[in-house]
Design a protein around this nucleic acid. Structure first.
Length: 470
RNA sequence: UCCCCAAUAGCUCAGCUGGUAGAGCAAGUGACUGUUAAUCACUGGGUCGGCGGUUCAAGUCCGUCUUGGGGAGCCA
């Protein structure tokens, strides 16, 4: 019987790709077992290929029925060989009538197996991150995350972009941004010192201080000024002591950069990009998304669908300030031109005023980094934040300052060491062009799409302050 | 990092003003059933997050640390 058997995924069976009466083999993990004293057991098997499991009918006359099959519990692994048949019960179209159930791994102590067939809290599952992919929520999240990652590459590839791998180890704190993770080979118990009593980094692996990257932007700009359309998609690190539902110390970031683009082009690109990847998930993960819509966040499917036709709200920072002032809302932080928008302000704009992804453009230059293009008003820079309901900032981007003299002036204002940035300034010396790009936090995207509100639950093994387990 | 809250069985929780612990689910056994988060009965299972303190007595009160949650800051 097994000679003619076909190895299939559960997805193939449930999607009707396999004809009834075919002799098939599936391999996976037991989700649940129910016994019938009429002489057989129902075993629900999952293999991660799709949201649902397949029901296996194991008859009592199988050799190992009493010895093994009757003792199968949630989490056991098995190889099932049998005939794919039309289901004799309600709730599923097909099932497998087993010829053999080969148990590959029992669960050592069923009582302490953490993943029970019941609702668990996300906090508990995070503490067993090595086993949580066996749950509905995490297997669905993983498939959606995969679809998004594939769609990211497909979108850019289809639009003529080159994927650039920017360095993960970097020698300079590019944006003068926050804390970075140090990379060193020095013996921390015996650090070499200079005559001045400072750490002698010339003795270190790279001969200077090095860190994990916080952004590939400056590097990828140089690629854009030759290949025109480029993007990065890779790991990024921030040593900020942020304890929120939307920050990770290690996350994946997508950073497109396009020559001859201005800010509006960049906002258009961001919009097209989101439409594309949202649509990919709607098409490829309908069952997973239905689960999220039912049990994680009501309305999450409609949220993605409505964005296909209804695009970004776009508003200038200056106008956003007026909207906030005119709203009559009492805010904890004062609304005034020149100040950062606080979370409460962003939430009001994206969740109450517009209730859809909202782009705020052209912020005061005093609160933004040195590399952003100075607008003609000499007060604002050409930048944008894309805010989405429930997440906050999903995308941050800007048109870059392409004029050498203006850029140098801005760097001096920010107290940067010009020597360190000569290569970056060269890009303005040799054939400079206007260009623009943005950064998008991949996990925030997964969070928005799935409705899973804690960013620690949209990556397999989250890295956060005080937690690098697994 | 700041403010607030929480930590009790494998999981989710209850435990009033201090007197050494309970339920549901899970697990084990049995009954029953083409079942489907099955149902019913019985059984086993806890150094009440760590350390220190107050008290005759601490799950309960106080201090501190750790972890987690909600919010804020920083940002993607």
């Amino acid at each position: 019987m097994t000679d003619t058997s076909v190895d299939i995924s559960i997805k193939q069976a449930l999607q009707g790709e396999i004809a009834f009466d075919t002799n098939v083999t599936i391999k996976g993990w037991v989700r649940n077992r129910r016994d019938s004293k009429a002489g057989f057991s129902f075993i629900i098997m999952h293999d991660g290929s799709c949201f649902d499991g397949i029901q296996v009918i194991a008859d009592a006359n199988l050799d190992n029925y009493a010895g093994e099959i009757k003792h199968l519990t949630t989490g056991c692994s098995a190889i099932i060989n049998g005939k794919l048949v039309k289901s004799g019960g309600k709730g599923q179209s097909c099932e497998i009538q087993a010829y053999s159930v080969e148990v590959t791994g029992m669960v050592e102590d069923p009582e302490t197996y953490p993943v029970q067939p019941k609702r668990h809290t996300m906090e508990f599952l995070r503490s067993v991150a090595h086993l949580r992919p066996r749950t509905n929520t995490f297997s669905a999240m993983t498939r959606v995350r995969n679809t998004l990652a594939q769609a990211v590459h497909r979108f850019f590839h289809g639009n003529g972009f080159n994927w650039i791998s920017t360095p993960i180890i970097t020698a300079s704190d590019c944006e003068g941004a926050g804390d970075m993770f140090r990379v060193t080979q020095l013996d921390l118990a015996n650090v070499p010192m200079t005559d001045k009593g400072e750490v002698d980094y010339s003795k270190d692996f790279f001969g200077k201080e090095t860190y994990l990257t916080v952004s590939g932007q400056l590097n990828v700009e140089s690629q854009a000024l030759a290949l025109s359309k480029v993007y990065t998609f890779g790991p990024t690190f921030r040593a900020e002591n942020s304890n929120t539902t939307r920050h990770l110390a290690e996350f994946w970031m997508i950073e497109p950069e396009v020559a001859f683009h201005d800010l509006n082009d960049s906002a258009d690109l961001a919009e097209d990009f989101l439409k594309y990847v949202f649509n990919a998930v709607l098409e490829e993960n309908a069952d997973d998304m239905q689960f999220f819509d039912n049990f994680v966040k009501k309305g999450v499917i409609d949220q993605l669908k409505s964005f296909q036709t209804d695009s970004f709200a776009r508003v200038d920072y200056t106008d956003a300030i007026d909207i906030l002032l005119a709203s009559g809302k009492k805010f904890e932080y004062k609304v005034e031109w020149g100040a950062e928008l606080q979370t409460e302000h962003e939430r009001f704009l994206a969740e109450e005023h517009y209730n859809k992804p909202t782009v705020i453009m052209n912020y005061p230059k005093t609160i933004k980094p040195f590399y952003m293009h100075c607008n003609d008003d000499d007060k604002t820079v050409a930048c944008m934040d894309v805010l989405v309901p429930g997440i906050g900032e999903l995308i941050g981007g800007s048109q870059r300052e392409a004029r050498l003299d203006v850029l140098i002036e801005r760097m001096k204002e920010h107290d940067l060491d010009l020597e360190e940035y000569q290569w970056y300034l060269d890009l303005r010396r040799y054939g400079t062009v206007p260009h623009a790009g943005f950064g998008l936090g991949f996990e925030r995207l997964v969070s928005y799409v799935t409705g899973i509100n804690n960013i620690r639950d949209v990556i397999a093994f989250p890295r956060t302050p005080g937690n690098a387990k697994f």
